[in-house]
Amino acid sequence: MPQPNQAALDFLATRRSRPAKTLTTPVPDAAALRPLLAIAARTPDHKKLEPWRFIVLTKPALERLALMIPDRAIALGIAPEQAEKMVRQFADADLVVAVIGAPKLNDAVPELEQVLSAGAACQNLLAAALAAGWGANWLTGWASFDRPFLEEGLALKPHEFVAGFLHIGSETRTPPERPRPDLDAIVQWVDE
């Protein structure tokens, strides 16, 4: 029988994201963030392509991005309340790690597998931040898919995309548990 890491299993069984709007300072400094990014980079990665990278956005960068949102919202016909919500996502944050999907051309590794690897990097970073005692949340939103915003604001290359904006900070309150999936409704056993 395998020897379980009960502490890790207990953490994963009770893991709960913290709403980004409830996070505050202090945030991890570079020394505290670096090991979390190293954990994020330990994601499944067929052929070791590293089809992702990280952009650490500090307060000045987040304020700059927030200022770009209103014009992009108007250009896209985004409703004012949705525009303001996206402004707040950046303006109210103190530290965000943008996980950037950066698929590489490789005949042996389909692009979808590389996209999934970028998502796994987001999940690893989220879990690592929470395990380290920080509050954390994985967000996207309409600006995550707006090419002019991504290319001007984050200098993304045409083939790159945002897999997630990981907000990390000090939690001000623990959120209540939420309903979880009914395993009987989503699990299928195949015995033959």
Rank of each mutant, 00 (worst) to 15 (best):
R34V: 12
A102H: 12
A13T: 08
E192T: 13
D182Q: 10
R16Q: 07
L95S: 02
E113F: 11
W142T: 10
N106M: 12
A131L: 06
A118H: 00
V115T: 06
G164E: 05
N137I: 09
Q3M: 13
A40C: 04
R147P: 01
V115G: 10
L95N: 07
R178F: 05
P4R: 04
W52V: 09
L154S: 01
P60T: 10
P28Y: 04
L166K: 06
W189E: 09
D71T: 07
R18Y: 14
C122T: 09
L95F: 13
I74E: 07
R18V: 14
L57C: 09
R18A: 09
L126E: 14
S117K: 05
V115W: 14
I74Q: 08
R180K: 15
A143Y: 00
E84G: 08
V87P: 04
L12A: 05
I78R: 15
T172Y: 08
Q123I: 05
R16D: 00
K85H: 02
V87D: 01
R180L: 07
D92T: 09
R18L: 11
C122V: 02
G135H: 02
L65A: 07
D92C: 12
A102V: 01
R72D: 07
E81V: 13
G169D: 08
P44K: 13
R173W: 12
K47P: 04
F165C: 13
K59M: 08
L9S: 11
Q123C: 10
P80L: 03
G153K: 02
A118K: 05
G77Y: 05
A38E: 06
I69W: 01
L105F: 15
L112T: 10
P51F: 09
A61F: 11
T58C: 15
D107T: 11
V109Q: 00
A136M: 06
K21I: 15
M86E: 03
A66S: 08
P103M: 05
A120N: 03
L65C: 10
A73S: 01
L67R: 14
K48F: 15
D184I: 13
V109C: 14
T22A: 07
A128W: 02
L139V: 15
D45G: 05
V99L: 03
A108P: 08
M86Q: 01
V96Y: 01
L67W: 11
A108L: 12
F145G: 14
G141M: 03
L154C: 03
G169W: 03
N124F: 03
A128C: 01
I78C: 10
L65I: 15
M68G: 09
D107R: 09
I186S: 10
D92R: 00
L112D: 13
A73M: 00
P19L: 11
M86I: 12
D29Q: 04
E152W: 06
G119K: 13
E50A: 13
K21G: 11
A155I: 14
R53W: 05
H167A: 10
L49I: 10
D182M: 09
T22S: 13
P4L: 03
A98S: 13
E63P: 02
A32D: 06
A136P: 06
F11L: 00
P60G: 07
L9W: 08
F11P: 06
L156W: 01
V87S: 08
F90Y: 11
R53Q: 12
L62I: 06
G119L: 02
V96S: 04
T25P: 15
L9I: 12
A120W: 03
L154F: 08
L62N: 01
G153W: 00
V190F: 12
A73H: 00
